[in-house]
Design a protein around this nucleic acid. Structure first.
Length: 509
DNA sequence: TCCTTGTAGGGAAAAGCCCGGG
DNA sequence: CCCCGGGCTTTTCCCTACAAGG
């Protein structure tokens, strides 16, 4: 139980500290006047940001110009050791002082605004963190089981402790949580947001300065985890478009195949956000008021039937092991939806009297393409459990699908179907320019690329061009000198495996 | 004979789409 | 109406084999 600070206007009290998602959901409940105030507040923040940025850019430009002038002067002076260097040291120190003072002034003017509406926006902090923590490769390692996450109840003073402008910006805790764990928390929080949507009564009371947020999984915790833990995983196997910030920060070539781990600070960060932690419902009495409708997130009376079904599934939270070995089952232990493992099986039931927010949330969740199922082995994330079950076969090596005409086995049923086409004479794809025929669409497309003469892969070391990526990689070995295939009988080394095999066949067999 | 290159076959893995059942 | 799971298709990446030519 805690109360928001009363120094803010009541609509700001309510909105500030909530995450982006929740804020959006809450906005329709505000009056037009309150909406306008919130809009103005955010616009002012944006203007403030741009203004600060412009001032810093201008100042840096002046500094660089001054440096350039000094260099010119140095080149003109006959004995620079005696004159220019001390002068430069002094001027450099002066400039550094100027930079510091200008920055300090900027930050103070930014943060010491008496307008309380600036206090909890956190937009400035958000942007700074974005720039410093865009790429966090250490999260790629040490995935941990979701169940390892410690969930603690936040202290009351942590939940709504808006930082004093003059005491500096809130510090953002270092992210030492492994990637999967972070994802887990994020997902949990996203789902909790739905649950933590205020009821109409709460919204009204909040707008009248009388909000007592009573859920142990406080909605004021959401910005914390969303802000700090919202990651976007960009990998070769992910289909989603890499974010601009992620791509911008990545210094690897396109299609590099590495995993991006970007911290997307796109929500509010305030001190309460940083300090807040997720809590499990601690009051046993409340459990009967919680529901497990993880799909809708927000509860209404119309979902009681599904709720019952979900609750029963809570007793066996793991996905049913597919035809399986013990190893599978062990792996599957990490397959539980993150939200299940994190927040607990029961959720706070908000008695929404309208389904407006409910439906909009569900629609948004679907469109957002959430992937709540995380592989504990590699961090792969799936939207549906069955995808993760399939994926886990790549780790277990299980290949339950066998060809009845050859020894081919595969982990994916879909690949067996593809394979079976080999055993038929049907080759539906044919080239109009030659006699080439194939049963694969991708092959005819690749073949047609050959006819087109387009060679999109160009070697930077020489004039070599090719349309085939595999050829490009193979060619690149010429410049690296790499010869990974060694003969065990002599000193012969080859760049290509086939060359080695031919060598062995001719020389040693 | 060795090496490089072009071309094609095929496996692996993931995602998209549709549909029916609960 | 919605979610989930199953079935199927599609897509993409990659490795490899092999032939041709210098």
């Amino acid at each position: 139980m805690f109360r928001l600070e009363s120094s803010m206007s009541r609509q700001q009290e309510f909105i500030c500290g909530l995450s982006h998602e929740v804020t959006i959901a809450v906005l329709p409940r505000l009056t037009m006047d309150e909406l306008m105030i919130e809009l103005n507040r955010r616009v002012q923040n944006m203007d403030k940001e741009n203004s600060i940025k412009d001032r810093l850019i201008n100042f840096l430009r002046d500094v660089m110009l001054e440096e350039y002038r000094q260099l010119e002067r140095v080149s003109e002076v006959s004995s620079p050791e005696e004159t220019s260097i001390p002068l430069r040291d002094q001027e450099t120190a002066t400039m550094q002082e100027n930079v510091l003072s200008a920055y300090t002034e900027t930050m103070l003017s930014e943060t010491s605004s008496p307008d309380t509406s600036q206090q909890s926006s956190g937009l400035d902090i958000v942007i700074k963190k974005e720039r410093s923590d865009l790429f966090v490769p250490q999260f790629d390692t040490a995935p941990s089981g979701a169940e390892q996450v410690q969930l603690t109840v936040p202290q009351q003073d942590q939940l709504c402790n808006i930082p004093s402008p003059l005491t500096g910006s809130p510090t953002i805790p270092s992210c030492e949580i492994p990637l999967t764990q972070m994802n887990t928390i994020t997902d949990s929080c996203i789902k909790e947001e739905d649950v933590a949507m205020p009821t109409e009564d709460e919204a009204v009371r909040a707008c009248h300065g009388d909000l007592n947020i009573h859920t142990p999984i406080s909605r004021s915790q959401e910005p914390d985890t969303l802000n700090l833990m919202n990651t976007s995983t960009c990998s070769r196997t992910d289909s989603h478009v890499e974010s601009d910030t992620c791509l911008a920060s990545c210094q690897l070539p396109p299609n590099h195949g590495y995993v991006h781990t970007c911290i997307k600070m796109e929500y509010h960060v305030s001190e309460d956000d940083q300090n807040a932690q997720i809590s499990q419902p601690s009051n046993p009495v409340q459990t009967e008021h919680y529901t497990d409708d993880r799909d809708t997130g927000i509860i209404n009376s119309g979902h009681e039937k599904r709720q019952t079904r979900k609750d029963s599934s809570e007793e066996t939270p793991l996905a049913p092991c597919q035809p399986t070995s013990n190893q599978d089952c062990e792996s599957m232990a990490t397959l539980r939806p993150d939200n299940d493992s994190q927040i607990g099986s029961k959720r706070h039931m908000c008695e929404l009297k309208t389904s407006f927010v409910n439906s909009s949330f569900k629609r948004r969740k679907r469109n957002k393409g959430e992937k709540p199922f995380t592989c504990g082995e590699c961090g792969y994330r799936a939207r549906h459990q069955r995808r993760l079950v399939e994926h886990m076969r790549t780790h277990t090596g299980e290949k339950p699908f066998k060809c009845n005409q050859c020894n081919y086995k595969t982990s994916f049923k879909t690949n067996l179907g593809q394979h079976m086409k080999r055993h038929t004479d049907a080759e539906p794809y044919s080239c109009e320019l030659c006699d080439y025929q194939t049963y694969r669409k991708s092959h005819i497309e690749r073949h047609m690329m050959g006819h087109s003469g387009v060679k999109s892969y160009k070697c930077e070391e020489c004039e070599y061009r090719t349309a085939d990526k595999a050829n490009f990689y193979r060619h690149s070995r010429l410049h690296t000198g790499e010869k990974p295939y060694s003969c065990q009988e002599c000193d012969y080394k080859a760049r290509q495996k086939f060359n080695l095999l031919r060598h062995v066949k001719r020389k040693h067999l």
